[in-house]
Computed example of a mutant assay.
Amino acid sequence: MKGHIRERSPGKWAIVLDVGEPDPKTGKKKRKWHSFTGTKRQAQSECARLIAEITSGGYVEPTKQTVAEFLAEWLKFIKPTVTPKTHERYTEICEKNLGPLIGDVALAKLKTDRIDAAFAKALTEGRRRAGGGLAPRTVHHMRRVLIKALNQAVTWDRLAKNPATATTPPKIERVKMLAYDADQTATLIEAFRPNRMFIPMLLAVMCGLRRGEILALRWRHVDLSDGRRMLSVRDSAEQTKDGVRYKEPKSGRARTVALSSMMLTELKAHRTRQAEEQLKLGVRPDDDSFVVAQVDGRPLKPVSLTHEWTRLLAKTSLPRIRFHDLRHTHASQMLAAGVHPKVASERLGHSTIGITLDLYSHVMPGMQADAAEQVDAALQAAISASRKTK
Rank of each mutant, 00 (worst) to 15 (best):
H4Q: 15
E7K: 09
W13R: 14
I15L: 07
V16I: 05
V16A: 01
D18T: 09
D23S: 07
D23G: 11
P24E: 00
K25T: 15
S35I: 02
A43F: 04
Q44S: 09
T55P: 14
E61H: 03
P62R: 02
P62T: 00
F70H: 01
L71D: 03
E73D: 13
W74V: 01
L75F: 10
P80C: 00
T83G: 11
E92L: 03
N97Y: 02
G99M: 09
G99W: 05
P100N: 04
I102L: 07
L107M: 04
T112K: 05
I115F: 14
I115V: 12
A118I: 02
F119K: 02
A122P: 13
G131S: 04
G132R: 03
G133T: 07
L134E: 03
R137E: 14
V139H: 06
R144I: 08
I147M: 08
A149E: 03
L150G: 06
N151D: 12
Q152S: 11
W156R: 06
K161V: 10
K161I: 05
A164Q: 01
A166E: 06
T168V: 08
P170Q: 00
K171P: 15
E173Y: 14
R174Q: 06
Y180K: 03
D181Q: 01
A186H: 09
T187E: 04
L188V: 13
L188S: 11
F192I: 11
P194R: 05
N195C: 02
L202A: 09
R210W: 10
E213Q: 00
A216F: 07
W219P: 13
R220D: 11
V222D: 08
R229C: 13
L231N: 14
V233A: 05
R234T: 15
D235H: 07
S236A: 02
M263P: 12
E266M: 08
A275Q: 15
L281S: 12
R284L: 10
P285W: 03
P285R: 00
D286M: 11
D288G: 10
F290A: 04
V295M: 01
D296E: 10
G297W: 04
L300Q: 12
E308W: 04
A314C: 11
A314P: 15
S317V: 12
R320I: 13
D325T: 12
R327L: 08
R327E: 03
H328S: 08
Q333D: 06
H340I: 08
H340K: 03
T356W: 05
P365V: 01
G366K: 08
Q368E: 08
A369M: 02
D370I: 03
A372M: 00
L379C: 09
A381W: 13
S384C: 10
T389M: 09
